[in-house]
């Protein structure tokens, strides 16, 4: 399950590569300009990714960790 932790790289890629494509106002998604939608999407996904990493991390089971 240690491979799961590599998911944490995705938010960084969404910024470093993604922003070049996401820097636009059109199309509007959910009433938000695209750049704002992209930002909110990745904040939510970051939360989800870290929840998955946390749940599958053996360090969180038992012991003082």
């Amino acid at each position: 399950m240690r491979a799961v932790r590599w998911l944490a790289v995705l938010p960084f890629l969404a910024l470093i590569i993604g922003m070049f494509f996401a820097n636009r106002t059109q199309p509007f998604v959910l009433g938000l300009p695209f750049i704002l939608f992209w930002t909110v999407l990745w904040v939510v996904l970051t939360s989800a990714i870290m929840a998955v990493v946390c749940l599958t991390d053996p360090a969180n089971r038992g012991g003082d960790a």
Binding site: L15, V43, T46, I49, M50
Partner: peptide
């Protein structure tokens, strides 16, 4: 919004 999210990672 971005820097906070990445700092938490």
């Amino acid at each position: 919004l971005w820097y906070g999210a990445l700092a938490y990672v």
